[in-house]
């Protein structure tokens, strides 16, 4: 009888612990989740570029430099004075293509809308002078939706477009400041092809979503 009571007590304690741990984890997870607004996921990300606002705008309007910077992952086509069409590959590979329409809203302000892609997405960018002669703050807001089924199954953690945004900001900063993105993937090593492949996967993880 005693042992049965002990067993029930232990089972109860275990249940409470599991539920408690689950709640704590859920709360932590929520804290890392993007904000929800009108059915959209919304994130704000910013990066500081050590150049005056005019120079940053100059980068966007210098077609040759922009093309060189975007070469590997996107093409741009001008539609009219304020609108551009952008076709970009999924940076993670997989052959996914994005088509977006970019609109210049004013000096140092532009917005974009994905017209054809796996996830409905829109965003805007604003350039603000940074304090203390620190250059320009590029402030971006990104909104995206995911399908109701994926959301119901909890398959959408909702972080992927966010990681993409952070990567894009880091890339832009590096292209403006250093004229290139640094890359160590092809540096020599004593690895076999299999080891190299595993290392490249790890590199990808360490490169994705990071900020300086």
């Amino acid at each position: 009888m005693t042992s049965n009571t002990t067993r029930w007590a232990l089972a109860g304690a275990a249940t409470v612990t599991v539920l408690g741990a689950g709640r704590v984890m859920a709360r932590r997870r929520r804290r890392h989740q993007p904000e929800r607004k009108d059915g959209w996921y919304v994130v704000h990300r910013g990066i500081t570029v050590d150049r005056p606002v005019d120079a940053v705008i100059g980068f966007w309007t210098d077609r040759e430099r922009l093309d060189r910077g975007l070469a590997e992952w996107a093409t741009l086509e001008q539609l009219d004075d304020t609108r551009w069409r952008c076709v970009a590959g999924d940076p993670a590979g997989g052959g996914t293509e994005w088509r977006a329409e970019i609109t210049v809203d004013g000096p140092g302000r532009l917005s974009w809308r994905v017209t054809d892609g796996p996830v409905a997405q829109q965003g805007r960018v604003e350039l603000v002078p940074a304090p203390q002669d620190r250059g320009t703050e590029i402030r971006a807001e990104l909104r995206w939706r995911s399908g109701p089924v994926r959301r119901a199954l909890g398959l959408t953690t909702g972080t992927d477009p966010d990681l993409g945004l952070r990567d894009a900001l880091r890339r832009i900063k590096s292209l403006i400041e250093a004229g290139q993105m640094i890359e160590t993937r092809h540096d020599p090593s004593g690895r076999s092809p299999e080891q190299e492949e595993a290392t490249d996967k790890m590199r990808e993880k360490l490169a994705t979503g990071g900020r300086p």
């Binding site: 900063k173 590096s174 250093a178 640094i182 360490l206 490169a207 300086p212």
Partner: peptide
């Protein structure tokens, strides 16, 4: 800011 291509770690 721009010389570590693997900044996540």
């Amino acid at each position: 800011d721009n010389s570590n291509p693997q900044p996540v770690f």
